[in-house]
Amino acid sequence: MPQVLDRIQIGMVVNGESVTIMAPSTATLLDVLRNGLELTGTKYGCGEGECGACSVLLDGRVVNSCLVLAVECEGSKVLTIEGLESNGQLHPIQKAFVDYGAVQCGFCTPGMIMAAYALLESNPAPTEDEVKRGLEGNLCRCTGYQKIIEAILSLAVRGADDV
């Protein structure tokens, strides 16, 4: 029997805002973001870590939110796709995805962008192979990945020595 009654209070910082929510102990971070906080930009694609559609940053690292229990996030910082845009301006990664044609059906896009965000945070000048590695856990059925890779490479900060 699902334990709908066993709810736990969880406090975390989501997209810079402190939130407190009540969630069942079995709920995943994905459930809480989507249903509790109505942040539906984070997608469910498989629920088992295989597709990356649910990618978010948890304390600065990209994770599959379907594989994290909400209770584990007590005291953590979460960044979702909704947290990237600021003052109505697209984040540069979002803009690159739009301009480079990296979005088709768009279902993989939020997860892709979060994975790209994590990659560029830790490696501002990735090579093509590093981009492929950074996105290896994100499936896309529409684009064939090429335009996604191009979009991210367009943001790679190139030093004089690696031209």
Binding site: G49, S55, N64, L67, V68, A118, G134, E136, G137
Partner: peptide
């Protein structure tokens, strides 16, 4: 192992 999301956890 798998991908960055999994390796991070």
């Amino acid at each position: 192992v798998a991908c960055p999301q999994i390796r991070n956890r």
